[in-house]
């Protein structure tokens, strides 16, 4: 696979190195299971433990479901990232949906505009090591999560 080394900085100003990137398109419900398997493949490759793998894939599953429900799909960038001593998986979910009006409320447990438990966003945040969300009403939403191999 292509090995590009691109250095980026996140909010916390730690230097991240991207070791590997992979794009995935979600258009319908049946894409979810193959996508989860792809994430799992990458997580296994960096030696992530079973529990953290499960947390990562569950978080990803929640976010993909949101993408399908509110934006009819979107794109996900799967990256293997490394920080000083730790490797991890970074997933960036980009959709061109209606966007979220009040991100703060959407991040609260039990809040849902659709017919769901409202655990999607806050649950995904609890399951990931790092979580950022950017949403512009009318333009779309970008959610980025990182799960470290040991965290």
């Amino acid at each position: 696979m292509e090995k590009s080394r691109i250095t980026t900085t996140t909010n916390s100003m730690t230097i991240l190195t991207v070791l590997n990137r992979d794009n995935f398109k979600i258009e319908r419900e049946q894409d979810v299971v193959p996508f989860r398997n792809r994430v799992k493949e990458h997580a296994v490759k960096i030696g992530m433990g079973l529990v953290n793998q499960t947390k990562l894939i569950t978080a990803a599953s929640e976010l993909v479901r949101n993408m399908l429900r509110y934006a009819n799909g979107g794109e996900i960038l799967i990256e293997v990232v490394s920080k000083i001593r730790e490797n991890g998986i970074r997933l960036t979910f980009t959709d061109k949906g209606p966007g979220i009006e009040n991100v703060e409320t959407a991040m609260k447990d039990g809040f849902s505009t659709g017919k769901s438990l409202g655990l999607g966003l806050p649950g995904a945040k609890r399951l990931s090591s790092e979580f950022t969300i950017n949403s512009v009403v009318g333009k779309g939403t970008v959610v980025t999560i990182i799960k470290w191999k040991n965290g």
């Binding site: 529990v51 499960t54 947390k55 569950t58 929640e62 447990d109 655990l119 649950g123 609890r126 399951l127």
Partner: peptide
């Protein structure tokens, strides 16, 4: 239920 699934569900808040 698998242990990893149980741990994840609890963390998820379910």
């Amino acid at each position: 239920m698998q242990p990893a699934v149980a741990i994840t569900l609890i963390e998820l808040g379910l």
